[in-house]
């Protein structure tokens, strides 16, 4: 940096006051630019009203054993399957190391919990999972059309097979279908999407 006023550091020896002022001014400008940019970036995140529309109540008494319904939650599908004894037994018989994804993927439990069937349901007869394939977001087909090779769901887009606990067993999907926050408000009413208070008393526990 050439110095006009002959301050120390003119020959690049010692940093001068002028050098300090340049760097300090540049630093302030960079921080200021970042602070201005952030609101314009952050505005694209989900808005407060979108976040507030986070929960629904579903009457599961309308779902007979051996059938399933799809409900809309947060703009996407949630599968609720009333499982038969055979489906539950089939899901529980699977060894962990047979699973491509050994994580329970359960929003109600801490991350990294093993993906046993017991860690994916609150009541064994009701399996409740988000219904977008973890590959590219398609809605897998279920009991009405095609349950795939593991009796759960089959994604027609790229051929992912899910089992009766909605865990990925074969195909390009990297993860199990995730379990949303939910609890049973009454014997027949499920609330999906919980406040922190409700989540603390939802009855979920790692098995």
């Amino acid at each position: 940096m050439t110095e006009e006023n002959g301050a120390p550091g003119a020959d690049g020896q010692e940093p001068s006051r002028r050098d300090f002022i340049y760097i300090a001014a540049g630093g302030v400008a960079a921080v200021g630019g970042g602070l201005v940019a952030w609101p314009f970036i952050d505005q694209m995140n989900p808005a407060a009203d979108t976040l507030a529309l986070g929960s629904i109540r579903v009457d599961v008494s309308v779902v007979p054993v051996g059938s399933e319904i799809t409900v809309m939650w947060r703009g996407g599908p949630v599968f609720i399957r009333h499982r038969t004894e055979e489906e539950i037994a089939e899901a529980r018989a699977v060894e962990l190391d047979a699973l491509p994804d050994e994580d329970a993927r359960n929003d109600n439990l801490p991350a990294g919990v093993p993906g046993t069937d017991a860690n994916r349901v609150l009541r064994p007869e009701f399996l409740i999972v988000k219904g977008n394939c973890t590959h590219l977001g398609c809605v897998p087909l279920g009991l009405a059309a095609n349950t795939g090779d593991y009796d759960g769901w089959y994604c027609p887009c790229h051929g992912s097979h899910y089992d009766t606990s909605a865990r990925i067993r074969r195909g390009p999907a990297p993860e199990n279908l995730p379990v949303p926050d939910y609890y049973f408000e009454t014997e027949t009413t499920v609330k999906i999407g919980l406040s922190p208070d409700e989540a603390n008393n939802s009855g979920w526990a790692v098995s």
Partner: peptide, 9 residues
């Protein structure tokens, strides 16, 4: 999620 501005398209 930032692109979507929500939990889905």
């Amino acid at each position: 999620e930032w692109l979507w501005g929500g939990f889905s398209v």
